[in-house]
Simulated assay, not measured.
Amino acid sequence: MPVASRREVGQRIATIRRSRRMTQADLARAAFVSLATVKGIERGVRSPSDDTLDSISTALNVDPSRIVVGSSRTDSRVHAALPEISAAIAAYDIPADTNPRPLDELAEDIDYLVQWRLAAQYARIAEHAPHRLTESLVALHHTNGAEQLHAARLLAVVARSADAVAYKFGALDLSARLVELMRWAADQTESRIVQATAA
């Protein structure tokens, strides 16, 4: 990475860090890197490795593309995950033969997808969405009553998060399929709010 680019990356990290009211020491602790690493990157004398960039991005609650502008790193990670998202919803109306996770545990994991969607952390959503889609579908097909309504809401939320990624990265056919899944799940929630959101 050229010196100018290193400086820009460091300045972006420092700006985002300050906007989060974090000190350099806070960021180092949250990112599990040394304070010297954070200082060196922010001064522009050091380039973050991919792992360090991921750790700092996570600690700052931003997508790595917000720090390294023009980077294809997020694009490549998302595009690699799109086929897995597609496979996860290929037969969404056919019950799977596995047992569902407890809905409370699943809901906690799905809350992260919502947070990542709101923070535009597309690579993180893409990485986790296939598994969450599968788990939500299993839960929907293997529950009934109030639990089934809850599972349908969770599935609608996961589909919405996955759609944010598909749409943003130009996978419009996949986006349309995810919207269809979201509407299908929303119709099973008996919640006008969830149905309105899907519409």
Rank of each mutant, 00 (worst) to 15 (best):
R46Q: 07
A186F: 09
A159D: 01
E84M: 15
T98P: 11
H150P: 00
D93E: 14
L155P: 05
K168F: 15
V157M: 08
I85T: 08
A162H: 12
T23G: 03
H150W: 13
I110H: 02
V38M: 01
P48F: 01
A36M: 02
P2D: 14
L178W: 00
A91S: 14
S71V: 05
A166Y: 06
V114T: 13
W184G: 06
V138Y: 06
A162N: 08
Y112P: 01
S57Q: 02
P102E: 13
S19K: 09
S175R: 08
V38P: 00
T37Y: 04
I94K: 09
I67G: 01
G170N: 07
V138M: 10
T134H: 15
Q11F: 09
D163W: 12
A151K: 03
A14S: 12
A123Q: 11
A80Y: 11
Y112V: 14
T58C: 03
W116N: 03
R21C: 06
V165P: 04
R29Y: 07
S191V: 04
P64F: 09
A31S: 05
A88N: 05
A30L: 04
Y92R: 14
R43F: 05
E135W: 12
V138S: 10
S161M: 06
D63T: 03
A87V: 04
V33C: 02
A88W: 08
A119C: 13
E147K: 09
A126I: 08
E190K: 08
A96D: 12
D26T: 02
D109Y: 15
I56E: 00
A162C: 10
L172W: 09
A91W: 13
A28R: 00
T189F: 10
L181S: 07
A171K: 01
A90Y: 07
R43V: 05
M22V: 03
